[in-house]
Design a protein around this nucleic acid. Structure first.
Lengths: 126, 126
DNA sequence: AGAACCTTGACACGATCGTGGTAAGGTCCT
DNA sequence: AGGACCTTACCACGATCGTGTCAAGGTTCT
């Protein structure tokens, strides 16, 4: 009572055989193959397929997104880059030379962002 | 020399104004607004936009994927669920009653997966 | 007041995603 | 040997992604 072929696995997991192949191509749930190339789904794979389905439904995410999450776990390089990007809160230069502020009104192409992010209605004259 | 409006920001970052709005909608790089609703891009945002561009190009990922990464960081619930799914290596029952193995040949719908994942050519008679 | 911006919302369009189906060919069980 | 199943490779198709453009209306500058 162990390994099922793709259609059997499809029946018991709710996925279609077509989707099982797709899921495999994405890299999630890859079934081992028989000597002649048939996919063999054991309890482990069946379990993963069922929980995968639940995961998607419960959080409204797509296969591609989980596929990306997988890529993140495998490619540390990428993971770190993404993480670094999120982490990077480019320091807002604390020291804003007053001189720059004076030119402001004149330079059409360089407007000011009030203080540090919020703008106290500098632009509305009305 | 601080905050640019959307088209100016577009010019200096390489993105189009359209994309800046799109990027904002996804949740990456949200520009603060002026009193009248104009987006104001300060050095921080500009920096993020440039590095974002680099991130995408260098690792060949899409905005949607980074958007998903963002969702993962914000929704710990989801993050944990995904992590759990990947972690879950459903234990392959170590104890396989020999009896089950005997029925194998007979039960058309229940085939066996050799040992723990790899199948030693059980299915190829030739 | 008028030009030059900005904002949101809509229509559009090729590319990819998520699915299904079908064809051509190999494998397994009677 | 024949039927039922598997494999890969294609064609298809609606939905979303990534972009652009345009319209209608508000803001800012001169």
């Amino acid at each position: 009572m162990d390994a099922l072929t793709i259609n059997e696995a499809a029946d018991t997991t709710g996925w279609s055989a077509r989707m099982l192949r797709y899921i495999e191509r994405i890299g999630l749930v890859e079934a081992p193959r028989s000597g002649s190339g048939y996919r063999l789904y054991g309890p482990a794979e069946l379990q993963r397929l069922r929980t995968l389905r639940e995961l998607l439904e419960r959080h409204d995410v797509g296969l591609g997104e989980i596929g990306f999450a997988l890529r993140l776990r495998r490619d540390r390089q990428l993971h770190d880059a993404v993480e670094a990007w999120f982490e990077a809160q480019p320091e807002r230069p604390e020291h804003v030379p007053a001189a720059d502020w004076l030119n402001w009104e004149q330079d059409k192409h360089e407007r000011l962002l009030a203080a540090a992010g919020r703008t106290p209605d500098l632009m509305e004259t009305r």
